[in-house]
Structure formats: C-alpha cells, structure tokens
Write a protein that binds this DNA or RNA. Structure first.
Length: 110
DNA sequence: GCAATGACTGGTA
DNA sequence: TTACCAGCCATTG
C-alpha cells in the first residue's frame, strides 16, 4: 500500500498505534503531535499529522493539538466546540488549549 | 534518486 | 504576542 485511505478497514500497524493513543486521551485532556510520536516511539509529528489527516475522522482528533496548544489547521472552530463541551482548560482568550493543564502524558493518573 | 509537500517543533527576532 | 527560519520524517510525483 502506498497510503492509508480514510475509509477502509485496514490501517497499518503504525496507524493503529496512533489511533489507539488518541482514543485513550481522556475528555478534557490533549496531546501534541510530537508527544504522540514519542509515545508510539516511531516516525515524527509530521507522520502523526499525516495519519490524522487520513484517519482522524475515526478518533477524537480535537484532543490532538500542536505544541503551542493550537488545534489542527482548518479545524479550529470545530475543536473549540468540543473543548467547551468537555471542559478542556483554555488559555485567556479561549483561542487555544492551556497545555500546562490539559497536556496528557499517557499516564492513567491525572 | 531528487524535489516538493504536510492536521509539526523549537529557536530567534 | 506574532512572524520567520531551519530541522525533521515519511510519502508522492
């Protein structure tokens, strides 16, 4: 296969790992692309973003943000709606996530 | 094999 | 705070 299709039933192992991590992110928490890349120990933030662009629709993609707390390009508005509904800690202005509090390290303990 | 691209990151101005 | 730049990693033409 040359690339992961957004509407098929056979994602690659790397894709499965990334999606798995995103699904594990609890409501009100977020992870950066780089964090996920390190968590799965494979590829880099660009690969995570690429995977999300294809398969993001199958997972809570709004819980995956950039290192500065800004949601995915072109999806900021939708993401903000979810943050408001889940009570995600936002920075003054409410335009991006407060990574200081919302960043999730993959641990079960908050 | 090389150049361009992308839901990125960190540093400097 | 925003803007620009160089680095990074895999896919695509």
């Amino acid at each position: 296969m040359t690339e992961a299709l957004p509407a098929d039933g056979e994602p690659d192992e790397y894709t499965e790992e990334v999606l798995s991590v995103v699904e594990r992110i609890p409501a009100g928490r977020v992870m950066s692309y780089g964090d996920i890349a390190e968590y799965v120990g494979r590829g880099g933030p660009r690969q995570v973003g690429s995977t999300m662009s294809h398969w993001g629709g199958a997972v809570p993609w709004w819980r995956v943000v950039r290192a500065d707390g800004r949601p995915a390009s072109g999806h900021e508005v939708r993401a903000l709606s979810h943050y408001a509904a889940e009570g995600t800690p936002m920075r003054p202005g409410g335009d991006r996530v407060d990574m200081t509090k919302a960043r999730w390290n993959g641990s079960t303990r908050d």
